[in-house]
């Protein structure tokens, strides 16, 4: 037995297993993609032995008809509301005052203290179309811009402030650029390349 055949034998198994790994990655990526909107009985959460499950709507039936997105429920909920694809009730009690804010009053909030990332423009309008002022003010956020103590990415990632909804029920915190969307102007030049 020559040296070369020993070398070949040494290389071969590793190469074969790397193929297996590549195939496994491809399969799992495919499953993750095709696995969107699993039927309730197959989502790992609902008990398939519950005979009443077939009376409940499966996510795919409702969500596949709404504007698509790449994160969360794979639905762009803001667009769905804007385009009238969903028409959710605003109140149950007749006397509840429903307040939706347009862009002028109060304005979008521009958060500049974002280190090297782009600044954050917080749109009041889109948030008030789903939420009541009291959901955020004065509990999670002070009304006066820049006065909320502890408002930083670390706490957001812990589920405070924006993280109370974003990452749990609204688009997740892995979507950095949806919030950090306002390029920082550089004095005497175009926006910074970042």
């Amino acid at each position: 037995m020559g040296r070369t055949s020993r070398e070949q034998r040494r290389v071969k198994p590793a190469r074969r297993w790397s193929w297996v790994m590549a195939v496994a990655i491809a399969i799992s990526a495919g499953l993750a993609w095709a696995g969107n909107w699993k039927p309730l009985a197959q989502d790992g959460l609902h008990d398939p032995s519950n005979t009443a499950l077939n009376q409940l709507q499966n996510p795919a039936e409702a969500l596949s008809k709404l504007p698509p997105d790449t994160a969360g429920n794979q639905v762009n909920w803001v667009k769905a509301l804007e385009q009238g694809k969903i028409n959710p009730r605003t109140n149950i009690y007749a006397g509840t005052k429903v307040k939706v804010l347009d862009k002028k009053e109060p304005p979008d909030v521009l958060m500049k203290n974002t280190a090297e990332l782009s600044m954050v423009r917080f749109p009041h309008k889109q948030h008030s179309e789903f939420l009541d002022c009291s959901n955020c003010h004065e509990g999670l956020f002070k009304s006066k811009a820049g006065t909320t103590p502890g408002f930083n990415m670390f706490n957001i990632l812990q589920g405070e402030f924006c993280g109370r909804c974003h990452g749990a029920v609204a688009f997740p915190l892995t979507e950095c650029k949806r919030c950090h969307n306002e390029p920082r102007p550089v004095p005497g030049g175009a926006a910074k390349a970042r």
């Binding site: 969903i86 009730r89 109140n91 149950i92 429903v98 959901n135």
Partner: peptide
């Protein structure tokens, strides 16, 4: 969410 805005449960209820 398709049927109710967040505010219905998280504010009214």
């Amino acid at each position: 969410r398709i049927r109710f805005q967040c505010k219905v449960c998280h504010s009214e209820l």
